[in-house]
Write a protein that binds this DNA or RNA. Structure first.
Lengths: 149, 149
DNA sequence: CTAAGTGCAAAATGTTTGCATACTT
DNA sequence: AAGTATGCAAACATTTTGCACTTAG
């Protein structure tokens, strides 16, 4: 795990500023590097990786790992993670990439259960349920791909 | 995605035989290779990767992807059990990085709930609960770092 | 001034692939 | 015989790291 950022460096601000312009969008570290390179903004890739990891650590962005042979995706969620009011869960469709925000008491119960029975203090802000959304689920059934997970 | 195996080769049988001896255990492709190398069983690593992928495709083993910088884990779940394969959830400690494998009916209920109430078909193989493990949780309380999530 | 962050290039890691050979059916 | 699997090594892609240099506080 990477330590939290302690300085506001130029690179961090630029990176953050960029991420804020694409909330809810999933981009890879490579995407970010490519974007800056194309824009002529000089930021080293190791800095990108390090800062992204820091931001994940701080809960400003989410990190999604979908497939072992594809890069991790990052997503700006800053606003949500800072307000402590409504905790919401995320469901991410593995097929279309759609991200669904869920408010649900039943799911909140998971938190209590994990704590009581498994001594695990869940952090909902960073937990993402992966699976298939309604649309993709239907689409998959009709297309006969008997992949019923 | 890799095509299904069509031949019963020696390597496939050996691999399968080994996997059957460690049901429910999570091993990486590297683990498998190392084991065979140590046992003097000559099986190439590409074969291991290819066969594992085939077996995943056939539902004989599960593949877990938890972290982008750690290898995928495989777990034998049996030839027959396709639909009702015993899947386990993962809890990952954000602090120490520990990975906890959880098998729990209560958590299985989440799957049903998400499907029934939110039309979302959860894929437990990809879903990871983030939070604090028991040890880190206690450690944090005692060290007065009032981080109560 | 000091601790933290940067950037480069190189290493490490995990996985895939090209291709000639060997095996299964 | 025909198609499939194997094994090696090399390619690949992503991420991490060592280290000298710069910068924020």
């Amino acid at each position: 795990m990477v330590p939290r950022a302690k300085y506001r460096t130029r690179q961090r601000e630029i990176l953050l500023a960029y991420l804020e312009t694409v909330p809810g969008v999933h981009i890879t570290a490579g995407d970010v590097c490519a974007y800056f390179r194309q824009q002529g903004v000089p930021i080293g890739q190791s800095t990108v990786y390090r800062q992204l990891e820091s931001l994940v650590d701080e809960g400003v962005i989410n990190k999604y790992i979908v497939d072992s042979s594809s890069p991790a995706c990052f997503e700006y969620v800053g606003a949500e993670s800072h307000e402590d009011a409504e905790v919401c869960f995320h469901c991410k469709c593995e097929k279309c990439g759609k991200l669904i925000h869920l408010h649900c008491e039943e799911l909140d119960g998971i938190q209590a259960h994990l704590l009581a029975e498994h001594q695990f203090r869940l952090n909902p802000l960073r937990t993402v349920f992966y699976g298939l959304c309604e649309d993709c689920c239907r689409e998959m059934q009709s297309s006969g791909t008997g992949a019923s997970l």
